[in-house]
Amino acid sequence: MDHRPQAWGRPRDDVYGAYDHSYMQENGPKQNTQQPIVTGTSVIGIKFKDGVVIAADNLASYGSLARFTDVKRLRPFADSSILGFSGDISDMQYLDRHLTELSLSEAYESPDKPRLNAANLHRYLSKLLYNRRSKFDPLWNHLLVGGLDDNGEPFLAAADLLGSTYSAPSLATGFGAMLAQPIMRRYVPDEESAKKLTREEAVDIVKEAMKVLFYRDARSLDTYSLAVVTKDGVELKEDEKLENQSWAFADRIKGYGTQTV
């Protein structure tokens, strides 16, 4: 019996042999992130006349394994902006802690009103991501930032692991860029049509797009988070379920598996 607390709960040396510490990489070259490990799939967002709707499912995949099914990938900031993370989950958790610090120091400087709006936040994150990729140690994420800009207009923009940024009335990351973006673009091809869109319409479009993503993206889940940001703040629902699914189309799909057509 080994009475040292350090040894408690560990495999016994006399049974399994000494632990091979070389796996811990205690010395050796410093390694940067080479690839994402636990990942979140698409985030989608759309602007409407008073704000932004944004959604992401609650799945964190480990390769093709649906490893964690309750990971919330939407994060409010200062109750005035929303962030959606796709890509590496551990880097998302790092960014989450970092942003908690940022919002605390901002709240300390200006307790009565939030000062960093979505546009400021997006600019900051893009610089952070670019800074990290320049160290060859990128934060392996693709972000959507939603909220209001300096003039109180709806704001939606993306930032990726290279520090690239872009903005559009509707945005989607990952698989969503192929599958959801064309659907959303049918409704909001330009800023003018986004200005006419009501909140209910925007939510319905996003729900429809999430359903298509669940049908066709093998790394997705039917429980998801959905947030609506307006001047009144962030309304975040983290346990939405896809409704009225129909897999009738499935048996018409051919060209893979055991079919012999």
Partner: peptide
């Protein structure tokens, strides 16, 4: 201005 895209708060 570069990192946040806003003028610096005077207090800061």
């Amino acid at each position: 201005r570069l990192t946040y895209g806003r003028p610096m708060p005077i207090h800061t």
